[in-house]
Design a protein around this nucleic acid. Structure first.
Length: 568
RNA sequence: CGGGGCGUAGCGCAGCCUGGCAGCGCGCCUGCUUUGGGAGCAGGAUGUCGGAGGUUCGAAUCCUCUCGCCCCGACCA
């Protein structure tokens, strides 16, 4: 491809509305342009990169035995009503009506459609298992789209769904997909980890997220430094510790202290001159199981996802000031477990506290020398947020560290949630009607490309790993008006293309500096610079984008040297 | 949805407070010079000042409404 013919509008300055590196660089390198909030055009360069990601995904999915299908973007509401998600999904589901006033939605995911497809086509266990995938546009009307392709409303996703006669078979496919995903992200040149994840509203038995490590990631992940444990902090556990040994004589008597206007942990601990870890923080939650009080040591935070699971609740939300007052008899900021009528869920960290401080359930007052076992009853769970240095729940000695990641893939074992709801069944060997056991497996295509940029860039621009690079190499004649330069450039361009490489030739009549800057921005792995000075010696310059290593080689050897550089 | 901010040339921005010819840098077009890291000189084109209404002799500027976009929060297969 010749630069002069390509729609490749690079930008010298950062666009004002971009706030992560990948978005800035995608805009600046002319890969994408915004059409509306969370909706983008892919320009030729961007389309090429996306095609590379899709190519890798497609090849690995096919190799893993999955079959490609294509499902519609516009889906009738009936299917979603069958699964119950027409009501459950909320405003993210963009609903539209056709000219006959029939209801449709833009599909944010395709469990319903695929389940419908398979129930209409598969009758017998003999036709199982099946793994069907598509690479398709999805639409989710996100409350707040951001970060370019990383969190758009319209985005392309590879989604696969597997159907099985038995749990064991579904588990095997889960493993198969786990391995396939690992291969896919390895081939994309990404530093990633598979982590245990929360299954969220899609439901299901267990699940892993594939996380690309990046400081700009929207998810936090806890890693063990000793074993292979890694989990989204939404679900990451903490090693259970035995209750502190207690000596009743150190347990002092409760005293009530006046703490006018001191509500937060910082204010109270500062006022009483003690450490936050001696405070028993009491938060009142409104849940579908009623109002509950959640307790945690003052130096930690409650993890609402873990609280939700501990309670077996569907919905957990911090109570309004009004509910707090009604429950505790005091304004927000003075709640404590003693004398509370509601259910009390306490984190294990509370059990360790000796002579702690709590709210007095009265305005402007706290209690000191409160001792959990002696002074109130609570159910104990692991419900606090993990922090750096916590003990690993899986091994004896490891500690957890928290890093950020971008979720690029997610695999679920779904079970029969959708097949039961939608009566998708087959006949087993005994002639018995059974619902399909299902799995589902997603990869964000654009997000994978964005994640690659987050991981591979420098101050000058993108540094594509070869598998995702829009071109393998770039030929850069310094002065296109020099006949000798152009003769060598054209010859090399042709030779590289004939050798099966994807080549970009910057044949623009521009200054060298402009072309070098653009080359660095666009980030093609290998660049061949052809300049008059070197050419007089019969030499051209090969530069690797990553590392910036420069070598001078003979013109005649250039094609072979490019190939070597690409491999190295 | 709550809080904050921004819409002025293709891009990045100033001008608005205190109303009076529509500006700057980059990019774009023409010519000459230049040609290994975002060139120099000279000339040139480009705007419903997001939209509608109002106040005023006069509105980018003040007022009202509206649309879009961004940030923080809540939310999230």
């Amino acid at each position: 491809m010749r630069f002069s013919k390509m729609l490749l509008p690079t930008l010298k300055e950062d666009p004002s509305d971009a706030d992560v590196i990948s978005q800035k660089l995608m805009m600046r390198s002319g890969m994408i342009r915004k059409v509306a909030a969370g909706i983008y055009n892919l320009l030729p360069l961007g389309a090429r990169v996306i095609a590379k990601v899709e190519g890798i995904v497609r090849a690995e999915m096919n190799a893993a035995g999955a079959q490609e299908v294509v499902m519609p973007v516009v889906v009738p509401s009936e299917l979603w009503k069958e699964s119950g998600r027409w009501e459950a999904y909320g405003k993210e589901l963009l609903r539209v009506k056709d000219r006959h006033d029939r209801e449709f939605c833009l599909a944010p995911t395709h469990e319903e459609v695929i389940t419908d497809m398979v129930r209409g086509a598969v009758r017998s266990y003999k036709e199982l298992p099946l793994n069907l995938y598509q690479i398709q546009t999805k639409f989710r009307d996100e409350i707040r789209p951001r970060f370019g392709l990383m969190r758009g409303r319209e985005f392309t996703m590879k989604d696969a769904y597997s159907f099985h006669a038995t749990d064991e078979c579904a588990a095997r496919e889960y493993k198969n997909m786990f391995d396939t995903y690992s291969r896919i992200f390895e081939r994309c040149g990404l530093e990633f980890r598979a982590v245990e994840a929360d299954t969220g509203s899609i439901g299901g038995a267990f699940s892993h997220e594939f996380m690309v490590m990046a400081d700009t990631g929207e998810d936090a992940i806890a890693f063990c430094n000793a074993c292979s444990y890694a989990a989204n902090v939404e679900r990451a556990g903490i090693r259970a510790t035995a209750p502190a040994a207690r000596d009743s004589c150190v347990e002092k008597n409760i005293e009530r202290v006046s703490t006018p206007g001191k509500k937060s942990v910082e204010e109270v601990s500062g006022f009483i001159k003690t450490s936050p870890k001696n405070l028993i923080k009491t938060l009142i939650y409104d849940t579908d199981k009623g109002v509950i009080a959640a307790l945690v040591a003052g130096n930690f935070d409650i993890n609402e996802m873990k609280l939700k699971r501990a309670l077996g609740a569907e919905r957990v939300r911090l109570a309004t000031d009004e509910t707090v007052t009604k429950t505790t008899g005091a304004p927000t900021g003075f709640a404590g477990p003693m004398g509370l009528k509601c259910r009390i869920a306490a984190d294990y960290s509370v059990r360790q506290i000796v002579n702690g401080i709590t709210g007095a359930n009265a305005a402007d007052a706290h209690l000191t020398n409160v001792n959990p076992a002696r002074d109130f009853k609570a159910e104990y769970f692991d419900i606090r947020a993990v922090v750096n240095g916590d003990g690993c729940p899986r091994c004896a000695n490891g500690t957890l560290a928290i890093r950020r990641g971008i979720e690029v893939g997610h695999i679920f074992k779904l079970g029969a949630k959708y097949s039961e709801a939608m009566k998708a069944t087959f006949l087993d060997p005994a002639g018995k009607v059974r619902p399909f056991i299902m799995g589902c497996y997603g990869i964000g295509i654009g997000r994978t490309a964005a994640a690659s940029i987050e991981q591979n860039h420098d101050e000058f621009g993108i540094i594509w790993p070869r598998p995702l690079a829009p071109f393998d190499c770039e030929v850069l004649p310094v002065n296109v008006k020099d006949a000798g330069t152009m003769k060598a450039a054209e010859a090399l361009y042709a030779a590289l293309k004939d050798g099966g490489l994807e080549v970009l030739m910057d044949d623009r009549d521009d200054r060298a500096g402009v072309k070098f800057k653009d080359a660095d921005l666009i980030g093609i792995p290998v660049r061949v610079t052809i300049g008059e000075r070197n050419l007089k010696q019969g030499l051209v310059e090969i530069k690797k984008r990553r590392g910036g290593e420069v070598t001078l080689v003979r013109v005649d050897d250039a094609a072979g040297e490019v190939r070597k550089a690409l491999e190295g």
